[in-house]
Design a protein around this nucleic acid. Structure first.
Lengths: 252, 252
DNA sequence: CGCATAATTGATGGTTATCAAGACCAGTGG
DNA sequence: CCACTGGTCTTGATAACCATCAATTATGCG
């Protein structure tokens, strides 16, 4: 269990939630056999394509989005090192969203039916995937609440907090500092605003002393205040694993 | 496999997606041993409470919602016969939303760690639950898109379509008829509108000949037109089960 | 330096919230 | 049968908020 010099970033991320057995680790390693490299702005897969595989993110930044018929865009989610892409597509035959690399990225593709093996042989991993899928739902619900019931300023704050806590899992930052390659149009497309409104909100937040900016880095100066502003809850640093099956005793 | 005179409505609903083995059926039956009855407007559980169990809905109509600090409300989801409540809370120790019966309802509670057994012994059910969780995500994503990028009229149409297809699973209606106990305030709380706007949109849709209303019944007169209006996709009638593990051969 | 992309700023208009008043409806009790 | 009541729905007037448009400035890159 050499968690520090872990080769797989998926195992590292999952390992923050539960103790992984060596057979769990083997199963995870099998998901990461292959590697695909993508340049910034490369499209990994398009909405409507048949789903060939799921991905583990080894490094990089990706987003998934759909385009509306009137030309506007809805950015659904961002993905980062250690994330699994495609849990939300498990029920579909076709991709529901276009997946794009916003920065140079490395992905490990694995076929959908590799999950078959996990579901039959690795009960703890199955439980973990269910829990992660539930966590993703919680995040979507929070976003939905922000979109449906908050003004532009609060929605912007909400997104910054979400990105911050999401990235903190791998970045280990404690200072409220956040590095975000998304431009303001993309940010707006995540929270139902135009690039113009996002700009105005960010300028305003900066003038209010709540955030500071330098290029693509944003620093959240008063985390507590910001969190109270939008009733934010961190969904990322912990999940409930108490209901998981016992780890297997055997196997070294 | 007497699917017609099925005693469990969960088994009936799940059975529309996959063939269930008798041991799957036993496992499902174990989830439905207990029954709790709730009157209309009864609160089943409140946001912030410890999660004692998940529920299978035997009959009725329920909603989950959160209240914002400014008094506004966000209605997240509706639940109906055969639905499983709590998949989105699996990652949390505490309830993220208040669950209310909008109509007289019967629920079967089962403890969170009953999933332990499913995950270790029933690979096909585990796969199915993962797929259902993914489906719930898709629905949330669709809702998010509607909230973030559509106007009031389109959002209203979207919600009606979603409710229609969701209910059609159990109601077998083909005529576009939809019976909805939610008042316009609750409808608005699902799509980020006020009761006033909902009223205006419904009146407008009715005048345009797209829907007809009679008390709590709404009839969608031009399903195709309405669907095209919001690029609607039915997430309920089918899910991808091709990646599921083979059903066990043994056991009668 | 020069170009393309991104961010900022201000003016204007559309959409929806808000507020308030009235209509409708079902149930209750006189 | 009718008046009363509480809830829901409808309608119109006003205001807040954000989108849209357009012009300018800043930033990044060859």
């Amino acid at each position: 269990m050499p968690r520090e010099h872990e080769s797989s970033c998926l195992a590292r991320k999952l390992g923050t939630y539960v103790e992984l057995s060596s057979s769990d680790r083997d199963a995870i390693a099998r998901l990461e056999k292959e590697e695909m490299h993508f340049a910034a702005d490369a499209v990994v897969r398009r909405r409507g394509e048949a789903i060939r595989h799921l991905f583990v993110v080894k490094s990089g930044w990706l987003t998934s989005h759909t385009d509306l018929c009137d030309g506007r865009r809805h950015v659904i989610q961002t993905y980062h090192a250690g994330d699994m892409i495609g849990l939300s597509d498990l029920a579909s035959h076709r991709c529901n969203a276009t997946l794009t690399a916003c920065a140079e990225s490395v992905l490990c593709p694995f076929p959908k039916n590799a999950l078959d093996e996990i579901v039959t042989r690795q009960p703890r991993l199955s439980a973990l995937m269910l829990a992660l899928s539930a966590r993703d739902q919680e995040v979507l619900i929070d976003l939905l609440r922000a979109n449906a019931r908050m003004g532009a300023r609060e929605r912007t704050v909400f997104l910054l907090l979400m990105l911050y806590y999401r990235l903190r899992l791998t970045s280990d930052d404690e200072t409220g500092c956040l590095s975000c390659p998304l431009n303001q149009t993309q940010i707006g497309d995540m929270i139902g605003l135009t690039n113009v409104s996002v700009s105005k909100c960010l300028v305003d937040l900066e003038r209010s002393g709540l955030i500071a900016r330098d290029r693509h880095r944003i620093r959240l100066l008063q985390l507590g205040t910001l969190e109270r502003m939008v009733e934010f809850e961190d969904r990322f640093s912990r999940i409930d694993t108490t209901w998981f099956p016992e780890p297997e005793r055997a196997a070294a």
